[in-house]
């Protein structure tokens, strides 16, 4: 159980940390990405890819739980 949680934490926390920690460095207009100023594109980009990261976390959760336990959930 502890291992399962820690493994899934890595992909799940990546977009949150990257989005927020990056803000001081991306507070600018250039380069324009798909017509959006860079700051907006940065935030939007991380929001868009978060489901993929959480999906990975979900799969990690499931595969480790299938492999190691049957604690009757």
């Amino acid at each position: 159980m502890p291992i399962r949680f820690r493994l899934a934490l890595v992909p799940a926390l990546t977009p949150a940390v990257a989005l927020v920690a990056g803000l001081p460095f991306v507070n600018r207009l250039e380069p324009i990405v798909f017509g959006l100023p860079f700051l907006l594109a940065w935030i939007l980009g991380w929001v868009l890819v978060t489901p993929a990261f959480l999906g990975l976390a979900y799969l990690l959760d499931r595969s480790t739980s299938a492999a190691e336990d049957g604690d009757g959930r």
Binding site: A12, L13, A16, W46, T50, A57
Partner: peptide, 10 residues
């Protein structure tokens, strides 16, 4: 909201 959903996952 994204931060909120990530927290909710755990």
């Amino acid at each position: 909201g994204t931060i909120g959903y990530i927290i909710s996952f755990f």
